[in-house]
Design a protein around this nucleic acid. Sequence first.
DNA 1: AGTCAGCGCGCG
DNA 2: AAAGCGCGCGCTGACT
Length: 797
Amino acid sequence: MKKTLAERVRNQNCKECELHLSANSVCLMGRGPVPCRLMIVVDAPGFQDDETGRPMVGRVGSLLDESLAAIGFNRRDFYITNLVKCRPMEKQKILKIQEKACRHYLDDEIEAVKPEFILTMGNTALSVVKKSGIMKHRGNVLPLGDAQVFPTIHPAAVLRNPRNEMLWKTDLEAFARLVKGESGATPTRTYLVNNQKTLNLCLDAILKSKAVAYDLETNGFEEYVPGAKIATISVSPKPGVAFVVPIHHPEAPWKQPERVLGAITTALAYTPAKRVAHNAKFDDRWLHQFGKPVYADFDTMLAAHIMDENRLKGLKPLAQMLLGVDAWANVDLAKGGAMVEDLKKLAKYNGKDSDYTLRLYYKFKEQLTVEGNERSLRIFTKIMMPASRCLTDIERTGMWLDQERMAERLIEINRRLEKLTTRLTKLAGEEVNWNSSQQMSAILFGKLKLPVIEMTDGGAFSTKESVLLRLRDKHEIVPLILEWRGYAKNRGFLEGWGELLDGNSRLHANYKLAGTVTGRLSSGKEEGNRGRGLNMQQVPRDPLIRSILGAPPGWRFVEADFSQIELRIAAHYSGDQTLQRLYQLGEDVHMQMAVSMTGKPASEVTKEERKKAKAVNFGFLYGMGAKKFVEYARDSYDVEVSLEEAKIVRDRYFEKFAGILPWHQRQRRIVHNYKRVQSLIGRVRHLTDIDSEDEDVQAEAERQAINSPVQSLASDLMLLSLVTLHDEMDPEEALIVGTVHDSILFQIREDTTDKWTSRIKEVMENLPLKKKFGVELEVPIVVDIKVGQHWSEGEEI
DNA sequence: AGTCAGCGCGCG
DNA sequence: AAAGCGCGCGCTGACT
């Protein structure tokens, strides 16, 4: 009798890795017809698979069956198997060594099954094509011998998080199209603009369209560095059409490429059409650098984000999910990027980018104008789009760096680090890489036998700062390590800045308007973690470091801070009478808190006690427990508090501010009922985790429901200030050079400082919330302004 | 040469 | 019963 594939290939006595020890079904083979045109590969058997001896049973299996039915297939159409044949240990990830041991079984299966198409699910299964990074590769067909591999996410990811469902369905539909030989969506008619006649057609189309999307292919991520080039620009005046204009690409036919770009940017700047781009700030910065200023009216990335802050926001996943199109190729950066890519190929990708951006625009425009989305639309048009445009300028302007100061301080830091390293080596008795927590731990807890205070999540002995602080008196090496870490960290910042400087001694940050779930800005590298960029939000507060940044001669550096903004907003939301009255009277709330907690009069409250009170304000406000407060007080403020003391402090807090707990309860009720919360002006945070079966996860969502509307509004107040001031300011007199959550940084010409500082205060303290959003704050907003030559050295005015 | 997770830490 | 929230980055060490 003929043996089945499983019988031929399976080895139930396999001992090639440790997994055979714990698995019920050792070497569990796949199931399905042999040969078979279609194959599914997932990571490894689950608990139920292991029990039953069949792949893909249980909840994951049911999801698979439903999903296959939805695309017109059945699991019997597939040979379904696992990459690793034995069930991995509980909650342990699959090791490469296990994959390797098993690989020959899979290869035998593939050889026998002879699939044309292999659907791999999850990052682990992706390694059948020796790739990693499922979110990058999903939806892109990869070859494996005679077969085509189509990677998608793991169905368990969909069960774990409903957010992934759309992506999963989208991928399976694309897979079905691949198998049936169908193509996704209507094609893009791409015109390569390589002569004056087509250029004129393109310009004409820009000027006559209702909405025009544009997208650049560049040779890098920083437009201001020498050698920066725009390979092509693609313009889509209507869906299904793209004009791709080569600019600096070697195959471009123009004698004066800047003039061509000038013509296009002029048309874009003056067209009555809506200017649309995906992550427009990037394209606009480059266009400004090489052509004329263009500012987008509609950013599809931001539109996606305002409606769902949790979703993927890249052009490709959005187009795949919302337009039902297949994945399309990217410029291959590994091969040298856009400038070396064949122009015809490049034009094809670039054309798709702008075409799909335009199609997304029509989709999002419709979604944003449906009933119920009025407030999101208002935030989008009145805050996000204007903020995107002014951040374009802020990023281009950059922040001045005092190179003399930096050089001096770097020398000093290096000198101290050298000294410290010598002493550390002596004390350790060997050469140690003090950057390695592993090596440091070996010295401290192994060699020197210091007591272990805390474990890391990964089970190592923690060497973090709070641990070292508690070991400070146990060995003379500890304070030296702390000192070393501080200097090493600072050196890292300065060296980083040195590499980022442009020719005018300025640093350019990159801000993301769609980088956080609350609507705050994030700062750092370009979209997709690419390129380099100053992170304005984590410049050390240490004056030795921070004051290296500032204003060049002739200008003043001005910092405008919202004072205790989150606490004020919480006072508004909660309606807490005590907190509101304190702010109306202009009291020092942290001091008040200290007074109420200690029972002492303000004059007797120590600095330490006020610090403790500040920690209370932020911690308890957002749901911190007594236990955490003990740690927090110790680690952050070097104040020892017993658990009993902490409980009393916590109780007193909620007694004094009696409106806080009811407000927490209201937020909890809202998030349980609606699975989302909103800020005063209507920015939404979706919290589907509130329905999690895990109570810790639920509790987390509840705390987020409390924090989000506060953080969110604080951020929107800042952004509103940013756009208002940016609109007013004459760049000859005043420039915005950065922002950090609740503060805005300016560079203001000396002779106009008084005028502008009072205007800044006026604007930020009296934002037109009533006029623009129909709401009002019950609490006064106060802005502190510091003026100086360098950051952190300013005088309060 | 690139990618990834873990750790530790910078900021609000 | 137990519970702050929101980020990005550099480095190591392990891997492809």
